[in-house]
């Protein structure tokens, strides 16, 4: 058997196969993106972006959904960033090695592994019902926070640990306290990479649907306060598609969502480039 195919030939064949499978992966991706964009572009008009939906979204635009998504992200960020960075500072700068720290790190790992639908269920039982926040931006935003918190903690912790130890020593040697050292030297040095990480986290959260389904509500009205329900863009897309309301509108919403994700990721890359050389202004 082996004599039929020489090692050199099988080497060649295998390499061809590897090229082919990599190409399949790329082509699948291109096809998916291309298909959505081609189908969605005709729908993308200014009025689609700036009008409210009519007939459950079969006509009109998606402005309330865009605003809703934006508000949810805002709440999620405003809560996840301080808590996440605080946690990372504790883990990277303060925590004594030992049981407590291990439990905390384990908790962060656990939270990261919980399926988003379970977080959605929890958000419904805890935020919507138990705390009485109802279906609202607050409930949805906090549920999203539970989801991105582990990510924020992890990227912040890594960024802090990457700050050279010499800077800490330099600050301590000048008689600075621990918190002065952390807040004035270590944290500012880590801010660019933390920012990049947090923005990437937003990119992950923005398309998240299962978490907000049972927490943010599905109202198509423009929210007037943070206790109003909203229907985020990905959920709107789900309803349009699964209830067969309108495929064109669903394509349009998909393109808008994809563009948001793309812009967010490009922003993260841009920030990383810009701050490639660490320098902090006071």
């Amino acid at each position: 058997m082996t004599s039929l195919i020489s090692p050199a030939t099988s080497d060649k064949a295998a390499k061809v196969m590897l090229w082919v499978s990599a190409s399949i992966a790329i082509l699948t991706l291109l096809f998916i993106l291309g298909y959505i964009v081609v189908q969605g572009l005709p729908v993308l008009t200014l009025s689609f972006l700036l009008e409210s939906p009519r007939l459950s979204g079969a006509e009109g635009g998606i402005l309330p959904a865009i605003v809703g998504t934006f508000c949810l992200m805002l709440v999620a960020l405003l809560s996840a960033v301080p808590i996440g960075i605080g946690a990372a500072i504790y883990l990277a700068e303060y925590a004594p090695v030992g049981v407590v720290t291990r439990i905390i790190s384990f908790g962060v790992e656990c939270l990261a592994g919980i399926p988003s639908i379970v977080i959605g269920l929890f958000g419904y039982a805890f935020l919507v019902i138990y705390l009485g926040f109802g279906f609202s931006i607050i409930s949805g935003g906090l549920a999203l926070m539970f989801m991105i918190l582990p990510w924020v903690v992890r990227v912040s912790e890594e960024s802090l640990k990457a700050v050279p130890g010499g800077l800490r020593e330099g600050s301590f040697a000048l008689g600075a306290t621990k918190w002065q050292t952390v807040s004035r030297v270590v944290l500012p040095s880590a801010v660019p990479s933390i920012t990049t990480g947090v923005i990437l986290g937003v990119g992950k959260a923005i398309g998240e649907t299962a978490v907000i389904m049972f927490t943010a509500g599905s109202s198509l009205l423009m929210p007037t306060s943070f206790f109003d329900p909203v229907r985020a863009l990905p959920y709107h897309l789900y309803i349009l598609a699964s209830e067969g309301i309108s495929d064109p509108m669903a394509y349009g919403s998909s393109v808008v969502l994809l563009v948001m994700v793309l812009v967010i990721n490009l922003a993260a890359v841009a920030i990383q480039r810009h701050y490639g050389r660490h320098h902090v202004r006071n």
């Binding site: 301080p82 808590i83 996440g84 960075i85 605080g86 946690a87 500072i89 504790y90 883990l91 303060y94 925590a95 439990i103 905390i104 384990f106 908790g107 962060v108 656990c110 939270l111 919980i114 929890f122 805890f126 539970f146 918190l149 582990p150 903690v153």
Partner: peptide
């Protein structure tokens, strides 16, 4: 800071 760090654990517990 410790309380922030404990948040994740508390959320998992909740």
């Amino acid at each position: 800071l410790f309380l922030s760090a404990a948040t994740a654990v508390m959320v998992v517990a909740l």
